[in-house]
């Protein structure tokens, strides 16, 4: 990916060309046209609604168009608790989806079963289907989900299928601050709210 980049701006009557790799251009196209199938089973669905509404607005990432048929979608959002009885249904939905397909585990329940260590809950969707990005949190904050979505897009662009997990942006033990997404911050000095820092 370290090939030299040379760009020129063409006038309207000029023609030109660009070179790239097929994989890279496909990855770039795929990452911005995700068609999601929301498999919403539990309380995380509420958080998903706030994520989809204008306040957090995940359509900014080219991933908002839901398809309620697995045959028309390539990103499965598993949102909420998956019970043992539901597991075969989830598996079948995953099998019906178009290739290439990705899976986002939204929330602790989907990622690991959460606190439901009991007779009825599947301890994580990866017992049934492969999962690309795990988003912990009960429910996860919308920022965490956006982190997860961007992480997934990054993985799609790189063709990377190893599972990934969303980490907190600030780790109080290590004192480490990552800069993946910076949403609007509330000012304390009275100046108007807004703008990335």
């Amino acid at each position: 990916m370290n090939a030299p980049v040379k760009s020129v701006t063409l006038d309207g009557n000029q023609t030109g060309f660009a070179t790239t790799r097929l994989e890279a251009v496909l990855g770039w196209a795929r990452k911005y046209s995700l068609f999601k199938y929301p498999f919403v089973t539990a309380c995380c669905g509420m958080e998903f609604m706030s994520l989809a509404s204008p306040r957090f607005d995940h359509s900014r990432f080219g991933a908002e168009a839901p398809r309620f048929s697995p045959r028309q979608s390539d990103l499965l959002w598993v949102i909420g608790t998956i019970s043992q009885r539901q597991a075969p249904v989830l598996k079948r939905i995953y099998e019906q989806m178009m290739e290439p397909k990705w899976v986002l585990g939204f929330g602790t329940c989907a990622s690991s079963g959460g606190f439901y260590d009991n007779y009825t809950t599947v301890p994580g969707i990866d017992k049934i289907i492969p999962c690309d990005v795990y988003i912990p949190g009960c429910p996860p904050r919308p920022e965490a989900v956006l982190d997860g979505l961007m992480l997934l897009q990054d993985k799609i662009a790189r063709g990377d299928r190893t599972p990934a997990i969303v980490k907190p942006r600030f780790d109080p033990v290590q004192g480490y601050q990552s800069d993946l997404v910076q949403l609007r911050t509330r000012r304390t000095d009275g100046s108007p709210e807004g703008g990335a820092k």
């Binding site: 597991a87 075969p88 249904v89 260590d117 599947v122 049934i128």
Partner: peptide, 19 residues
């Protein structure tokens, strides 16, 4: 029977196929 008090609290059972 999972709500009997002697059912182990953390026992999960094998996944079942789609029907």
């Amino acid at each position: 029977f999972p709500l009997r008090k002697d059912y182990p609290a953390d026992r999960a059972q094998p996944l079942v196929p789609y029907r």
